[in-house]
Design a protein around this nucleic acid. Structure first.
Lengths: 240, 240
DNA sequence: TGAAAAATGCTTGTATACAATCTCAGGGCC
DNA sequence: GGCCCTGAGATTGTATACAAGCATTTTTCA
């Protein structure tokens, strides 16, 4: 019994509902993941997706491979794809990386920001406030992505985009209650407007640290339970 | 006429010569690209590669897609794959990104470096000095990759690895004569040994800037010739 | 002779068939 | 009663067939 139905909400997002192109399928899946409509751990059977999108498994496999290289889905041989459940360690890495990268890039952002950019950011922040929760998460990602794209460095922007997407997964697993950017974004815009680099860097650091601090890593990450942490108290002594 | 022969040198690198796995093929192609045995602009016909590696096009396509996402090959629809020729703008971005990332990560590297790491780095630097030119390029990449892996942040290491690989492409296109890291790497090790962060950051900045300065961007990047620059002297006046 | 148009061959894009492997349920054995 | 083994079903891995598009050559006409 192909549960194609489960994925029909994905297919219906754009054109009609079938024969979508490579990129469109990627986009639809990406949005569904970032918006938490597909939760970490969810299985992604190729047949079901192929049916939902009206294409063959060939294309689905290509899209899944791409998502896997971006660490949004995990591919295990002969066991199929599922939405990645980041480990606490990975979560920590992502936040450290983002603090470092976004902090450093703000220097370039300040140097290149234009009035159009400010308008675009304001619009995104507004939409974010009035959007339902799931879309707000995606718009929050968009806010950061757009902000960092101003630095004018495609290589870094792309790497950062991946980190931002992964943050959404991390929030899905470890966020409790009203996690995610709790609408702090509008506060950044005036700082950017008067090009106050120090204030921007401080703000960004606190923003990211605040999100990370709001997470709850004691809840087992949905993946394999951390027996070491649950039962063992000899963490410091094994040096190998 | 399938010029499978052209690619047999790739296939012969590891096991026998056929029925190689996904990762092995990726590895072989990656090394060939980074070692400049496949030059930017070189075409990569799926049939020829499939024949050389003894697999079907299915696998080749997967590997090519992965290399494309890492920006090492360029995939154009219905026109196949070829080794990417980075543009001067991309080259600039990559070096800026590397300066930023590697400089910042040195802080973490200093905090985590172990004697084993120092040994490994020394060994790589030694091999690099005594290796023939093409392998030296790959070992140079390995040096930087290993160094940055010490920071203990997988997310950033991976992004950086891609930037390092792309640097090899940039050198292939714009490097003249004895470009690449001209064996400066051994000088870094004592600085690392005494954890002199300031000296390390200065060294790294100059190292990367030196490589970038040794490039010659006037030579047309092998891709589409820059007619604007060749024939037009009205560069400053067209503002659009 | 030169240039535009048509045809052929080669390469890639997509779907599908078949083989290999995993999962899970049912039954037998300890 | 619990555990292991076995087999059916389902899912993924790989290869191949066929369709579609591009490139080059050949042909034709001025």
């Amino acid at each position: 019994m192909n549960d194609t139905r489960q994925f029909h909400l994905l297919a219906g997002l754009a054109t009609g509902h079938d024969a979508r192109s490579d990129d469109a399928i990627y986009q639809a899946l990406w949005e569904a993941i970032v918006e938490h409509r597909l939760s970490p751990g969810a299985r992604l059977p190729e047949d079901a997706l192929a049916g939902a999108f009206g294409v063959s498994r060939t294309m689905i496999r290509r899209v899944l491979q791409r998502l896997a290289l971006e660490q949004l889905v995990t591919l295990r041989t002969h066991r199929g794809a599922q939405i990645t459940s980041p480990t606490p360690a990975e979560a920590r890495d992502v936040f450290r990386a983002r603090r470092l990268l976004e902090g450093a890039l703000l220097t370039e952002v300040v140097a290149h920001v234009t009035p159009e950019d400010l308008q675009a950011l304001t619009r995104i922040a507004d939409q974010e406030r009035h959007a339902p929760r799931d879309q707000a998460i995606r718009l929050s990602a968009r806010f950061h992505t757009h902000l960092m794209a101003m630095a004018g460095n495609a290589s870094l922007s792309e790497a950062l985009s991946q980190l931002i997407s992964r943050t959404s997964l991390i929030i899905a697993v470890y966020g409790r209650g009203r996690a995610g950017c709790p609408c702090e974004h509008p506060a950044l815009i005036p700082l950017l407007e008067r090009r106050d680099l120090d204030a921007l860097q401080t703000w960004m650091h606190q923003h990211l640290t605040g999100i990370e601090a709001s997470l709850d890593f004691t809840a087992s990450g949905d993946a394999l339970p951390d027996f070491e942490h649950l039962f063992g108290h000899h963490r410091e002594q094994n040096a190998s």
